[in-house]
């Protein structure tokens, strides 16, 4: 697996998609922050308009910071990045050279997973750092620093869970176009289906859709989230990561090239 890790990380130096997507992510974070600052004076009106949809417009620095995953379009951009990083090996038949040299499918899978975790972690840290700096400069960050750190850590776990889901989808589909479409659309489709289930069940105090992986990031985008919920979201993120990793592993073991 060591050889495969070296192969993967050598790619990073020349990976245009990584640098482009990282640049876009940071640019969108900056644009979003500046836009929020510009709209600060209209905050009350926007909150009135958004209340009907359950959305709030907050210029509290800590909330702006915690909203960075949405501001940076982190989920969308990592879906695209993971699709490119995984499907490139299939589209160019590189996996043939890997498997035919006696490297096991599981070594290939976990080397790729490590690569994806490291690269998306870099993106996460970069986006969070830029967001933290701009939030402090433009709005000033108040609130419990430890709680902010806990929330961001849980957001990180949730993002890893999303990455493992995207990886599993790409391992199944193996084609770039289809993978990009599926990684963007499928989580939303599942969220809609779960919302439908919630509607059918009609339990007001509990929402299954709220615990789906793509909903967790949204739930963690404000300082007002309760500590028990943070812990629950963290645990769910770890479970999702494990489940999607196993599912992707199974798809990978059956891969034929």
């Amino acid at each position: 697996m060591k050889d495969l890790l070296r192969l993967e990380f050598r790619k990073l130096k020349r990976s245009k998609s990584f640098y482009i997507i990282l640049a876009i992510m940071l640019a969108m974070t900056v644009i979003s922050m500046i836009t929020t600052k510009l709209f600060e004076s209209f905050a009350d009106e926007l909150n009135e308009m958004g209340a009907e949809f359950g959305e709030s417009f907050s210029t509290a620095g800590e909330n702006v910071l915690l909203g960075f995953l949405s501001a940076s379009n982190f989920s969308l951009l990592t879906a695209i990045f993971v699709s490119i990083a995984v499907c490139d090996d299939y589209d160019n038949h590189i996996v043939k050279n890997i498997f035919s040299r006696g490297y096991s499918r599981s070594d290939f899978y976990f080397a790729k997973l490590v690569y994806l975790i490291v690269t998306t972690s870099i993106m996460f840290v970069a986006a969070a750092t830029v967001s933290a700096i701009l939030s402090e400069v433009l709005f000033g960050i108040n609130g419990d620093a430890a709680k902010i750190a806990h929330i961001i850590s849980t957001q990180y776990l949730a993002s890893l869970a999303s990455v493992s889901l995207f990886f599993a989808i790409c391992t199944l589909i193996k084609k770039l176009g289809g993978s990009i479409a599926a990684t963007i659309i499928l989580p939303s489709v599942i969220a809609l289906l779960l919302a439908l289930v919630d509607e059918i069940l009609g339990v007001e105090s509990f929402s299954i859709a709220g615990y789906w992986v793509s909903s967790i990031a949204g739930s963690l985008s404000t300082i007002t989230v309760k500590t028990p919920d943070i812990i629950l979201y963290a645990a769910l993120s770890v479970v999702y990561f494990a489940v999607f990793t196993v599912v992707g592993y199974v798809f990978n073991e059956r891969t034929e090239v």
């Binding site: 160019n92 038949h93 590189i94 996996v95 043939k96 050279n97 035919s100 006696g102 490297y103 096991s104």
Partner: peptide, 22 residues
């Protein structure tokens, strides 16, 4: 243990697997 044996095999199957931008 075929995987161990495959370390000593080189192959060219169907289209060559190459990195087009290199």
């Amino acid at each position: 243990n075929a995987d161990a044996g495959r370390r000593k095999i080189g192959s060219l199957i169907e289209a060559p697997a190459i990195y087009k931008n290199e």
